[in-house]
Amino acid sequence: MVSRPYYLLIRMSSGTEQREPDHVRTLGHEEYDPIGTAILIGIYFLILVLLWIFMYFVEFLGNGPTVVGMALTVVGLA
């Protein structure tokens, strides 16, 4: 454990009233900007979209024959 200067030890409110020796600062809701989360989740979003397109249009539709409706059957989308 890295020991931090005493002036950085801050008592947390309610639930987590215990010493957090690793803390160098305390961020409240207003000061905290989760930009890193936004970047990671954006990357995840892109991966999902690209993999979905690949899976549906390449792996699935390219894997024919596929079960199709009879010529005049209206596809039921309840």
Partner: peptide
């Protein structure tokens, strides 16, 4: 978008369940 893709599969290539 996912639901739209599945619907496209049903109406476009005519995939039936």
């Amino acid at each position: 978008g996912f639901i739209a893709t599945i619907t496209y599969g049903a109406v476009g290539p005519g995939i039936a369940m």
